[in-house]
Design a protein around this nucleic acid. Sequence first.
DNA 1: TTTTGAGTTGTTCGA
DNA 2: GTCGAACAACTCAAA
Length: 490
Amino acid sequence: MLFRTDLRLGDHRALAAAAASGKPVVPVFVREPDQSGARAPGAARRWWLHHSLERLAAGFENIGAPLVLRSGETAGVVDELIGQTGADTVLWNRRYDPAGIAADKRLKASLHDRGLSAESFEGHLLHEPSRLTTTTGGYYKVYTPFWRALEGQPEPRAPVDAPKSLRRFERGINSERLDAWRLLPKRPDWAGGLRDAWTPGEQGAQKQLRRFLDDAIEGYATNRDFPAGQGTSRLSPHLAHGEITPYQIFGALRSELPDAPAKDIARFRMELGWREFSYHLLFHNPDLATENFNRAFDTLPWRADPVLLGRWQRGETGYPIVDAGMRELWQTGWMHNRVRMVVASFLTKHLLIDWRDGEAWFWDTLIDADPANNPASWQWVAGCGADAAPYFRVFNPVLQGEKFDPEGAYVRRFVPEIARLPDAVLHRPWTASAAQLSAAGVKLGETYPVPLVDHNQARERALAAYAGIKGEQWTPSAPAKRRAPEDALP
DNA sequence: TTTTGAGTTGTTCGA
DNA sequence: GTCGAACAACTCAAA
């Protein structure tokens, strides 16, 4: 029984099938080598993975079958375990990143060649990206029709229960030690802020869901935009690691909230729909993380400027809402959705730095870094993604701050050096009077940066650069290669 | 095959 | 200070 990004016991169809078979079960987590083609988890996700595996191993102790940890290519590890156990069946929940799909396809073929049984199950997504097509047989490139099509289908199945016990394999199977994988940061241990903010693991996921349903679903549609509060679900890292499934979330929304406003529930379902859409796009565009979805952007003159990139990464741009977001990311491994859009717009439009640089930084620092969501959303903000915003839409970091952090609680929390500025100038410190600055203990250029770029100038420059590619021919990055339905996922 | 309606998230400008 | 229009042209999806 293979585990990958499905670190849970509940609503795990492969595990449920293994338990129901009555055969002894050997649960295995395979740590694939970096050069396997899969995208290696970034530093923040390695931290999360360590703790999530710890919790998963404890869960397996409880139900009687110890979790085995192994390193290597999945196929090789599976071969070795078959040799050690005489297993006749290998089960897994499907994954949907290009390298994972390829690896599992090879594994399934190799097992079948030897007359062994291989079974895979859904669970990570509400829809199979290979199955959902437009009426003309292609895949969806616009979110709204995609979501309408998905919502038009039968309601997703109910979650399945976690097995109460498993039949243990009679001999012990050797396992690598989690500590030896060195997933946790040492010297320096930068994970303090992550520990304070998050509880990796299935129980942590259920608790977070509970909090969301109790405290935040009502009013979600509006509150979700305000980063100072807890208006979002904060389930993304749990979803990314498969500690909770969208089926469990949809099930809870159906059964536990008969009185919650339909608008809020619909809006939250739609946000999970974006996750589905991202995977839909990734499946049909395996190079989504490296190539412009809209190839017209290939000629956009990005500016390679490591100094400015560094200032953005450290949250030293001089725009408080941008800096607060980047520091929230650095400190907690997560950033509020509204602020993600603002900082991404700032990097790609104000600084004209390639979205891939931002995507790579997020990949390394986000505990919820997701192979589909991360590139799809970066491309969306940059304008080269599916159903792009008009090229002339450039987020104004001052207006965004004033609109969505009007009391400044978010900025004051993450940019304490300007916390004593009055609300009226908090999001634009360079406009504060000398008296206001000195009363707040702020020395621009010393205790807090002067803005890296002037908004209006940067806006004009971005519009000019983006206008320059307007005439380019639009071509999808993955042309018309239709997949047959039977070419389903391994 | 052709036509038609529509497309997450915004900003700026001028009345 | 508020409000509506302009900001482009094009692709997508379905009728």
